[in-house]
Nucleic acid binder design. Structure first.
Lengths: 220, 220
DNA sequence: TATAAAATTTAGTCTGACCTAAATTTTATT
DNA sequence: AATAAAATTTAGGTCAGACTAAATTTTATA
């Protein structure tokens, strides 16, 4: 029970969680890239996390890592902190959605449970952060997500933006300028089979978006 | 210029600053006690801080430490963070003045300058924190303080509480219950030469306070 | 299926910030 | 001033979490 979950462990767990959502298990290299750390260092940490008292991770040589139940709880705790913080920063300190990530990345490890609870209450227990990402509930469950990438839509389909899965400030600022933010409706006007560009109409504006963008925007 | 001021260095500087305010230089033992660290460890760190590229501390064997100009700036930066955070926690998240210290102690090392600036603005550039302590200005100057300890007052003197210099939650809660908080007026009714108790009247209430309390309350 | 390329792990190091125990210096007391 | 007590420093060690270089394994390709 008394395991010490340090800040860097929290970071590992958070990124393993996110990588697990996509493909199956989180590879050493992907983790290293996300954490800005040498792959060798990741190996060492994964071995440690896999053999800690209550294992936080299931790890098989050359096959990457998966979270255990307790690892997932710990990850969701950090993610809840992160997303509540982002929401808090936007609504109470006027941050824009492209600025919140960096700040939340630092604060998420440091705030108390009390702080978390006070934020949640002050914000009216929000279910999504400023990017539209789901906020894990107080009992550390991740609500189901039904959205699909904008890239999967075809001509004449219509949808509503639910979330933007990117932490790149430039992309976020750009989308903000285009008015492509959560809850905005759009219609696919055309699809190019060559480069997979999508031409979409939103309000009275039309945009042509490449895969780099359409795979980051999720709609419903 | 590129010196790395880690979290623990920030803690050292902050406490050296506070100890310097009282007596002259901060002794190894006092620092150790405040930081909850073995004295030997403090010695090592002081030597390091004294011989870093821009020295942060002036240190003489067996005589404790003093801050250099750059050390003081760094300390004031942390203290500004801390006191702004306390104010912020009270006004935007409904914390009480006895709860803010712990949280601010962690956050102070982590927030960005941007966060600091946004808080200051949102709060209307406050000059004092919830305990009445002065907040260093944005250009890292500590305003002059003219208050004196309540313990120094004598019968018939009257004064206004300016600040309460304690981080003990129990004491703070107690004072809050007594209504002895910043900006409250009081009058000294009696002074005991034996135990230095002060009998004070504030509003319609009368209290007898020992040195343990009267040296923590500062008035003007 | 051999082999080159990519991914991963092993082995050995380093650094920051702490620790304990022993040695030394300073301060206080007779 | 001698000496006991308190404060401080030195010396040697630990631990977490990173690193590099070399070794190994897996995957992809000719």
């Amino acid at each position: 029970m008394p395991e010490i979950i340090t800040q860097s462990i929290q970071d590992y767990l958070k990124h393993i969680y996110e990588l697990n959502e996509h493909g199956g298990s989180a590879s050493t290299n992907d983790l290293a890239a996300r954490l800005n750390i040498a792959p060798a260092s990741v190996t060492g940490m994964l071995q440690k996390l896999a053999s800690s008292k209550p294992a936080l991770v299931v790890y098989k040589k050359h096959q990457g890592a998966t979270l255990t139940k307790s690892g997932e709880k710990a990850a969701l705790e950090v993610i809840r902190h992160h997303r509540l913080l982002e929401t808090f920063l936007v609504t109470t300190l006027g941050y824009s959605w492209d600025e919140v990530h960096t700040e939340a990345d630092k604060l998420e490890h440091v705030i108390s449970e009390d702080f978390e609870a006070r934020m949640a209450e002050a914000l009216g227990n929000p279910t999504r952060d400023p990017h539209g990402e789901l906020i894990p509930t107080a009992d550390l469950t991740m609500p189901a997500d039904k959205s699909r990438p904008l890239a999967s839509l075809r001509t004449d389909e219509t949808a509503t933006i639910q979330r933007v899965n990117s932490r790149d400030p430039n992309l976020l600022r750009h989308l903000d300028e285009l008015g492509l933010i959560p809850n905005v409706q759009l219609e696919v006007i055309a699809h190019s089979t060559f480069d997979n560009n999508l031409t979409i109409k939103s309000g009275r504006k039309t945009h042509v978006l490449g895969l780099n963008i359409t795979t980051k925007i999720f709609v419903i």
